[in-house]
Nucleic acid binder design. Structure first.
Lengths: 333, 333
DNA sequence: GTGAAAGCGCTAACAA
DNA sequence: TTGTTAGCGCTTTCAC
């Protein structure tokens, strides 16, 4: 990598002249600027990012801590973050917490020592279960802003971007009630995290308000055989509708129902959280609750960068709610 | 963030004493070391990463350029890279090229100016189509090693990690021939990239070697309605087996076949590239070609870090082939 | 209009 | 055993 020093030497001027010339300072003569820029172009000079960061005490880099990159929703949020960050001149350093509190702490610690200007994260399952929030507070006290999305820690004062999980399942369930479904079940593979619980509550509320049936909830653990669990459930309970809290449950529910001879949506309706490409994985296509993951990511990046650059003068922390949409496909009436 | 300077001041010693003490230099007295470390702990001192990078001219950071994070395979490779990199003390900066040559160039350019010690990447579709490789060569000449995985540019001299795509579909097709299938079709949604072509060739070779049937290839474009295309194809051609080059095609093929009344695997066998969780999205479960994405990622990280740290003394570039495995599930006999 | 010098936080060769 | 100094690449204030 060519440096200012080398350019200066070759041009027989001082380092500061070169620096100023490249930054179009009006202290420098036109002719000099031209000469400097020419040589810089020739050598394809780029200012060293580390030197800039050190000097200006900002890195133009965002730390992103994601619990699980194999989750389509989270991957999509990451995509949204990356796009918005790039647009605003920021890079992202990605860490995958793998749902582990320890890794989450470590990432915060490691990147916190000068590598990034702030963090965007979704809380690891282990941290949520143990309600651990000290590490977040420490980071914030250190002067590094955090934006949390989806799985947030309510007791931490920071900007947040969340989904209207409760309303989403509440409305989805209402929808099924309007179809006159008599036995609506709720399937969930994510019952240990906050959003999973919110979704269950939305379902429960709709069922109880209606008052004509009892909630039936199938909780599937990560280690369970997903297909077998659902098959067994279908055989034991006669149900005519499913609200699925995660995308796999919805997809498997449809395929299994079809396999057991049920007609969709005549005999059974299914609504699930899923992305567009996932909803393609069933026939008929799954009626889905879309979370607009990319928008969530873009919003999170936006909030963080504004905070970093002090664009929003106000000190209050914001919580943005990105509303889900119900996309009606053919797995409901 | 607390600095050496501040610690030194508080302890009434010089900056270099503090630095040496923290690095356990034997130049420093035990008592001093203890005092320094105590205060450093108290203030939770961490050396500033930017300063270290600038000083030592290495960043302990890897640039990863991924064409599409929503692709499960690529996401999984990223996971593997991140895990291996973290294990060896490296961070990763992730850029998403979105299959665009321009973005790929830009990322190389931007991160190349001091932000990373090397790159791991899978070539963007646009770059492959136009056979653009100058930007890779430029980066390498700049002294930054590159490791390519999956979609590689053969004319660039660098370490590579690839999958035995040709053999994978060749063997899968042979497998179907052994089942005595008479009309084996090939479905692909990725025919414009190198691996897609390799997979088609493997299929073709097996069919032609057998000599008892003609290849039947269905190429699906990104903008096509995936389900409709496959449905129409099933209606027009009577086929009894499918080899799918991408995971969506395999999954949709099974669900659509079932929907059209075919019995799987009695009437039709399906084999596809997919991850474990994807193969759960069909009933019966999809017989899959596993690519071992995490291992690919780990290998790529390993190769790159060795190159960066000059562990492998040899100058020859290595190409590692990670063999696929055929996981027999119930969508084949 | 140009250059010298200080300083961002750190390490290390050299001096004391 | 500890401190002084130079330097990594850059910007910026202040002299000339």
């Amino acid at each position: 990598m060519v440096t200012l020093k080398q350019l200066a030497k070759e041009l027989n001027v001082s380092i500061s002249t070169v620096s100023k010339a490249l930054n179009n300072s009006d202290e420098i003569g036109e002719e000099t600027i031209r000469r400097v820029k020419e040589l810089a172009d020739l050598y394809n000079y780029r200012p060293n990012k580390m030197a800039l960061s050190l000097k200006q005490n900002k890195t133009k880099t965002i730390g992103v801590i994601i619990p699980n990159i194999l989750n389509r929703f989270l991957a999509k949020v990451l995509f949204g973050i990356e796009r918005e960050a790039t647009k605003r001149g920021y890079n992202i350093i990605t860490c995958i917490s793998n749902e582990s509190l320890e890794k989450e702490k470590e990432s915060l610690q490691l990147l916190g020592s000068g590598s990034v200007d702030g963090f965007i994260l979704s809380v690891a399952q282990e941290s949520q279960v143990n309600n651990e929030i000290e590490h977040f507070k420490r980071t914030i006290n250190q002067g590094l802003p955090i934006v949390m999305f989806d799985r947030v820690a309510h007791d931490v004062m920071c900007d947040k971007v969340i989904v209207d999980d409760f309303d989403a399942t509440y409305n989805a369930t209402k929808n099924l009630l309007r179809e006159n479904r008599k036995n609506i079940a709720f399937f969930s593979n994510i019952n240990d995290i906050s959003v999973g619980k919110l979704r269950e509550r939305g379902y429960n509320k709709a069922i109880l308000e209606d008052g004509k049936q009892d909630p039936i909830v199938l909780k599937i653990k990560k280690k369970d055989d997903h297909q077998k669990k659902i098959k067994a459930f279908f055989k034991k309970n006669k149900i005519d509708a499913v609200v699925a809290a995660d995308s796999s449950s919805g997809i498997i529910a449809i395929n299994m129902a079809a396999n057991l001879g049920m007609k969709i949506p005549k005999d059974i309706s299914v609504i699930g959280f899923a992305s567009k490409s996932d909803s393609n994985h069933t026939f008929p296509k799954l009626t889905t609750i879309r979370q607009h993951a990319k928008i969530i990511g873009a919003n999170a990046a936006d909030l963080l960068i504004n905070r970093i650059e002090n664009i929003s003068s106000d000190q209050d922390m914001k919580t943005k709610i990105v509303k889900t949409s119900l996309i009606k496909n053919k797995s409901t009436l």
